[in-house]
Structures are given as structure tokens and as C-alpha cells.
Design a protein around this nucleic acid. Structure first.
Lengths: 349, 349
DNA sequence: TTGTAAGCGTTATCAA
DNA sequence: TTGATAACGCTTACAA
């Protein structure tokens, strides 16, 4: 099927290409009569301007690239990203910016920009290293629109969308302390990931502020399996912590699963607190720090769109809050149900 | 930043555009010497051919469109799609086909094809009506590559990827019958969605085959909320069914949530069986019919890639199987536990 | 109000 | 082995 072009329309109407072009874009200098004829014909034959040709003349693709961290598996298995994507996709649709998806670990995104396949990039999850940031800054300096979701490894002039983790984490620690917890365990995200380090630091300072001692800290990689494994280790080592604090819900889910396998339940055996408040958290009753994930996505996409139009930055600050559910309770009441006594096992935090 | 073009390279090297073009694509007719010079320079300046220009001359975009059913919210809130996307994205990456994402309810996809923005379409979830199928068939006849995931409303020559729902559903009904269930309730997906109707028919025939009476059937819209609402209705009406069968896990999760709200548990009060076996199903112990979702995604993307290259069809048949977990049990043993309430851990039957 | 023509960055078909 | 040159489909000065 040969696709219908502007020239085809012009030929059948007996006018010039340019006339058709102008008519279609409602140029006021075109007579109403011809414009009507053109519109009618275009609609009749289902004409749509060729995107490549437009991109070539306009020097812009009208598409933005979405850069996913790590593998497709990592991203899509994690409900956090599903919610983020939801926010992003809905705004993308409403502003008419198609999204090009890359789940590549190699910096595909740079090629996309150099090929002019996309006008801008939205990078998620910020497992971006220093070299990535430099690359992105260079691309932005070269005219590309760039926005990051999540705290980057260092301050940058790129648009960054984050949400303030402190209030929610502080509330969580306050609540745990008030409930009578004294010793906790921290299970954080990967040490090389800046957001994980910063979140971990926030947990630590909040714990200290509320008199919670961090008996032990484990580094996971933010996956379900990491949480499960961490929990197994903790269960095996009979750590005396009465609460486990996780860097994200996904790991907390893994821990709940491990508890379940071991025939134990939260909060009877131990309180479990997550971070993110993905939808499944409410379902399983996970106490967690709520982050407005969807809003993070919508704000990010809006920011990117604004950057494309070179509009000034404007952001609604996003904040976290603690959502207590079933998996956190006073260790005193919980200990009644607990079958195990406490062997204390203090390791370096 | 003016982007570097083929002409730029040619100018600085003092050769013709066409020479550079050929050198870069390793045309054997180019001398090794000039090819080396070209390659070196191209790499040095970070040259990448403009995608729009290529698309224009090649008459193909090198991009495929992903058509999501309904809203972004519906899709991303449903873990089924997350897993499907994972499969799709990973293959897309490995075959080097970027994915353009549309979460639009309006047939954006047709425009994308007419604009030559994409060479093919992968449509998910098949909430496609007759008119959609006709449109897609016409587009396919016009040279577009099209693949559908999920049973369409009627037979079609388009590539369709499905997985055989019968074995898993049959096993589920057999197991329920063996466990002593006699009366069940069916909560299906939307009546207008072909896949939901066909799945519902499969449930019905399997139930009949194994002597399970369907006391009642409710139509939901495949969302968490629909499952929750269905469960509330069932709880309110004191339906005598000892098992609830769902059209997908997402609705089953909603039902579990409603049970939880009512202070009831599955399988103590009622057995709950889902369909899909998304990852969260294992976490909450949902008995469900397993569908190889990720494989469905990878197969679909592979099929689309094959279609683009006009390669013959070849498919691995995908099948379902029942995965009994905690939410299904004998109604007899369950009733014993239901009076005890509280902290009891129900082990698998 | 409309037509002509140049250009966007590549590729491909000729010649040279 | 390389160089002109004509597409590809659209936009946009500049003329008419």
C-alpha cells in the first residue's frame, strides 16, 4: 500500500503541495473554499502527515524517551515503577507526547538523542552514576530536555523530581519508639545507588532522633528476593531487633514472605515497615512510608514537557508520610504471641 | 547545538556525502583507507545518523507501537500487564526495536501507522471490538505488522498470541470438586470483552464437568475495586457458595481485601481462586490458575518482529495450570477453623 | 490567495 | 573506488 502524501492530495485537487500543507494547518491566508476542499479530501482518504518528514523539517521528533534503570525484569517486577509509569503515561498522553521505551542497561538513550529520535529524556530510578550524569548534562547543554526522577548522585542543574522522605520516615520512627521498640534492623537498597544511600541516611538519623538503636544493617538490591533473603538471615541469626525497616516495599514483601515460610507472622514475631506504599502494601497490610508515586510520575512528565517548551520550572513539593497498618505493633503485645525468646546479637549498624 | 550530519563529516574529510554514507555502512566497495578515516572521525564526533532522515528514505520507522487497552491507570495498576510488559520490553530490547507507548483509549494507533511513526503494532488485552479488529485487519492488509495478545472477538488472520486456559481451569475445578465444594460463584470480567467472555465460558464448562454448581455469577471490570465490590455483595447476600472463582487475580485480590475488612479470612470463610498467577499471588497465598504471562509477552514481541520481517509464523503453545495455595481448601475443614478466628495459620490442605 | 523552489539528512542510482 | 544527483514527504520564504 503506497501511503497517501501531500503531493497526492495536491494532484487530485489540482493545487500545489504548499497550498495543501497550509490549508491543513489552517493558515488564515488560505481561502475558505480551498481549505474546505482540502480538509474534506484529507479526511476522506485518511491522510496523516508523515512523521519522519515533519521531524526532518521541524528538527524535532515530538517524542520523549523513557530511560529505565537496570533490566526490564527489575523495573516491571517492582510495583513502584508500575505506579510511576502510570503517572508518566497518563500525562504523556494528555500532552500528546508519545513515549519511547528503553529498558537497556547500555546508554541507548544517548544514541536516541543523537539520532534525533527523541527530543528529551526522562530517566527513572536514578541508579545513574557520575558518568551518566555528566553525559546527561552534556546532552542537556546541547539542547536536549532532560528530567530525572529520584535523587541523583550529586547536585546538578538538570530538572530533578524527588519527594521529601524525611517527614514520613520520621513519623515511622516516632511511632515505633512510642510503641516501645528500642532495637531495629535496617535493610537498605544497594550501596552504590545514591537514592538508597540517602534514604538509608534518613532512616538512621530519624532512628537516632527517636532513640531507636540500629542493631544491624543489611544491604539488599531492592528486589523481592533480597528482602526474603535478608529476612532469612535475620531469622537465622536470632537478631533481637523488634522491628525491621526496609528501603522499599518490595523488599518488605519478600521479608513477609520469608516470615510466612518460617511459620511466623508480622507483627507477632517482628514489626515490618516498608517504604513507598505501593498498592499491594494496603492489600497485605504492610505498615509503610507513603510516597506519592503517581504524582511523582505526573510531575516528572510535566516537568519534561515544560523543559521541552523551555518554560520555567515550577514544582509542587512532594512529601512522604507514615501509614501504620497491620505489620507494625508494640513489641510488648507482640511478644505474647511470639514463640521465640530473644538471643541478642549485636552487629555493627 | 547544531547536530553533526553526514555532510559535516564529508566536508571535513573532503569527500562526498555518499562516500561517507557508504563507508559507515561498511560497503565493500569503499577502500579500507577511507573507511578507516570515516569511521574514526564519526566516532570522534559522536556521529549518529538522523533517524527521521533514515525513516524517510527507508520508508520504515524501525519502531513498533504498543497499544494498551483502556487507561494508563487500568493497565499499570494491574500486575498482569506489568509482567506482560516485562516480557515485551526485554525482547524489544534484544531485537533492537524501540517501543512507542500509547495508553490512549482513542485509536491513536491508527494515526501512528498512517504517520509512519511505527511499522507495526502490538495490541494488549484485546478489549478490542469488532471495529478495532476491522481497522487492524485493514492496516495489516496495507502492509502494517500487527500482533494481538489475547483472544480477539472473532477469528482473524492477524497474528494472535494466547495461551490455552482450559487445562488450568479444568484442574482448578477438579481440585475444588475433590475438596468437597459443590456450589461456587463466578466473578468474570466485562461482558463486552471477548477474552472475559471466553474465559467465563471455560470456567462454566469446567465447573459443569466436575459437578460444581454455579450459584451466581457477577460481572466485574477486572479491577481490584470490582473484586472488592463483588465480594461485599456476596458477603451481604449470604450466598451459599463455598468458593469464589475470579476472572483474574486482580479482582481476587480485591475480594481478599473485602474479606479482610469484614474480619473474615480465606479459605476459612470461602475459598478464593484467581486467574493469572501474577507475582503478588504467591505473596498473599492466592490459589490461582497460572498463566505464563512473561512468555506471552516475549512470544508476542517475537511474533511481531517476525511479522515485520515477513517471516513465517511459528509459535510455542502456551498453557495454564492450577496452582493451589492457601486460599483454597476443603469447605468442611475450613468451617472448623472459621469459628476460632484470630491468629491461626492455615496450612495447605 | 496561491505557486515555486529550496532545504531538512539519508540513501540509492547513475556516471566517472 | 568515488562523486553528482535525484528521491523520500514536508515546511516555508519568496514570488506571483
Amino acid at each position: 500500500m503506497r501511503k497517501v502524501t501531500l503531493q497526492d492530495l495536491a494532484d487530485t485537487l489540482g493545487v500545489a503541495r504548499s497550498t495543501v500543507s497550509r490549508a491543513l494547518r489552517a493558515d488564515p491566508q488560505i481561502s475558505v473554499a480551498t481549505r474546505g476542499r482540502v480538509d474534506r479530501l484529507a479526511r476522506a482518504v485518511g491522510y496523516h502527515p508523515n512523521a519522519a518528514a515533519r521531524a526532518l523539517t521541524h528538527r524535532e521528533a515530538g517524542v520523549v524517551g523513557l530511560v529505565l534503570p537496570r533490566s526490564a525484569h527489575f523495573v516491571f517486577a517492582n510495583p513502584y515503577f508500575a505506579e510511576l509509569l502510570e503517572g508518566i503515561a497518563s500525562v504523556a498522553e494528555s500532552v500528546g507526547l508519545p513515549i519511547l521505551l528503553s529498558a537497556s542497561t547500555t546508554p541507548d538513550y544517548e544514541r536516541w538523542l543523537r539520532e534525533a529520535r527523541v527530543d528529551g529524556l526522562l530517566t527513572l530510578g536514578s541508579s545513574l552514576g557520575e558518568s551518566d550524569i555528566q553525559r546527561l548534562e552534556a546532552l542537556a547543554a546541547g539542547g536536549a530536555a532532560v528530567a530525572l526522577v529520584g535523587e541523583p548522585i550529586r547536585p546538578t542543574d538538570l530538572r530533578v523530581l524527588v519527594c521529601d522522605e524525611r517527614p514520613g520516615i520520621d513519623q515511622a520512627c516516632e511511632r515505633l519508639a512510642n510503641d516501645g521498640h528500642e532495637c531495629v534492623t535496617l535493610v537498605t537498597g544497594p550501596a552504590h545507588a545514591p537514592y538508597a544511600r540517602s534514604r538509608s541516611a534518613v532512616w538512621r538519623s530519624a532512628a537516632e532522633r527517636h532513640g531507636l538503636q540500629i542493631l544491624r544493617s543489611i544491604t539488599g538490591d531492592d528486589t523481592f528476593d533480597a528482602g526474603r533473603d535478608a529476612a532469612r538471615v535475620l531469622l537465622g541469626s536470632r537478631c533481637a531487633a523488634t522491628a525491621w525497616l526496609f528501603g522499599n516495599d518490595h523488599m518488605a514483601f519478600g521479608a513477609l514472605h520469608a516470615l510466612d515460610e518460617a511459620g511466623l507472622r508480622s507483627p507477632d514475631h517482628v514489626s515490618v515497615v516498608g517504604f513507598d506504599d505501593v498498592m499491594a502494601a494496603a492489600l497485605v497490610g504492610l505498615s509503610t512510608v507513603h510516597q506519592p508515586i503517581r504524582e511523582l510520575g505526573t510531575e516528572a512528565m510535566r516537568a519534561l514537557a515544560a523543559e521541552l517548551r523551555q518554560q520555567p520550572r515550577s514544582g509542587t513539593p512532594l512529601v512522604t508520610r507514615f501509614v501504620p497498618r497491620r505489620t507494625s505493633a508494640s513489641p510488648l503485645s507482640a511478644s505474647r504471641h511470639s514463640s521465640e525468646g530473644g538471643h541478642i546479637d549485636i552487629s555493627e549498624p
